[in-house]
């Protein structure tokens, strides 16, 4: 080190200088990674441990916690609101995943070739995904409203309905349908873009060779496109299932979980348990269960993709 000579090196323009990277490579690398390590430790690992600890305690919002395991978990099984929410969330996930996937894949196939003007349509389909999710939900709430929304007027003019329909607070099935339409409108372009990158990574030579061999378009789609798209399709399905299982805004904002509690999702129940009923311990227990279920589901899907590919 130059400091042992008692002389500091000239600040710049010295050609030969000791390189700290060579001397303490481990420490230098660690120092650069340290801020990320602190954030991960403090705001990810610690809360993960804390949520498990909280789930074993009676944890009111404002009073000190007391250990009560396994009461929080036992109470979940008796809570009908939770069971209804689980059933509803699973039903919602199934419907949304099927419909959203069909629309997204359809759009991706429509805009996959690079003809003139296709870029414009890609942009148009993606446009709703550029708007924030809560913003899009609020936009839809206005669009579907009887006060300023155009929908009832258009449908009455077309003769499809006789009287204005309440799209978010009348019939439970109609409210459910509204959330599904909202999700498709906001997320189809997003998933289309992921599927499109998968479609475009298939080499064109494979298609050309198949066509030269006289393969039909259905045959090419089923035997070439689908198998080669498997990893991308798996990723998109994974995102859709996880996203739907954790659905919150589309219910909390658009339908307020109603009519009644017919569109109340699991995450809505957790938030209500914590910040309306002030039962943080019981909300933590529900969180732990959701977390385990989703991690298991994701691990299962990952293993499935690995095995297939």
């Amino acid at each position: 080190m130059s400091n042992t000579l008692g002389v500091r090196p000239a600040p710049a323009r010295t050609l030969i200088r000791p390189r700290p990277r060579r001397r303490l490579p481990g420490l230098v690398g660690f120092a650069y990674a340290a801020p990320a390590a602190v954030i991960v430790g403090l705001f990810f690992l610690l809360p993960l441990g804390l949520v498990v600890w909280m789930s074993l305690n009676k944890w009111p919002l404002l009073a000190p916690p007391t250990f009560n395991a396994p009461d929080n978990y036992l109470q979940i099984a008796e809570n009908e609101l939770v069971l209804d929410a689980v059933v509803f969330t699973l039903k919602y996930t199934a419907v949304v995943t099927v419909l959203l996937f069909a629309v997204s894949f359809g759009l991706a196939l429509l805009v996959q070739d690079r003809r003139r003007g296709v870029g414009f349509f890609r942009g148009a389909f993606f446009l709703p995904a550029a708007v924030g999710w809560a913003t899009a939900t609020l936009l839809f709430f206005g669009l579907l409203s009887d006060q300023i929304g155009p929908l009832n007027g258009i449908l009455e003019w077309l003769g499809l309905i006789d009287a204005p329909v309440s799209w978010t607070a009348g019939d439970p099935d109609v409210a459910f349908g509204s959330t599904v339409v909202l999700v498709i409108w906001r997320w189809a372009g997003f998933n289309m873009l992921i599927l499109l990158t998968g479609l475009q990574s298939i080499p064109t030579e494979i298609y050309e060779a198949a066509r030269a061999d006289g393969a039909s378009r259905t045959y090419i789609f089923r035997r070439i496109t689908l198998p080669l798209m498997r990893p991308t399709i798996a990723l998109v399905l994974c995102l859709m299932v996880t996203g739907s299982m954790l659905g919150f805004e589309q219910f909390y904002i658009l339908t307020r979980g109603g009519p009644g509690s017919s569109t109340t999702s699991v995450v809505m129940v957790i938030v209500r348990e914590a910040f309306v009923r002030f039962n943080l311990g019981s909300a933590a227990a529900m969180s732990v269960l959701v977390l385990l279920a989703l991690v298991a589901l994701n691990a299962l899907q990952l293993a499935f993709i690995r095995r297939r590919s």
Partner: peptide, 30 residues
Amino acid sequence: FRFPGRGLLFVLILAILMVPYPTILIPLYV
């Protein structure tokens, strides 16, 4: 750089994706 804990830290950072974030907001609040 190579440094102690490099592989572990990278896996932990990616693991954030595996954990649904609404479920850790309650402990984060505390």
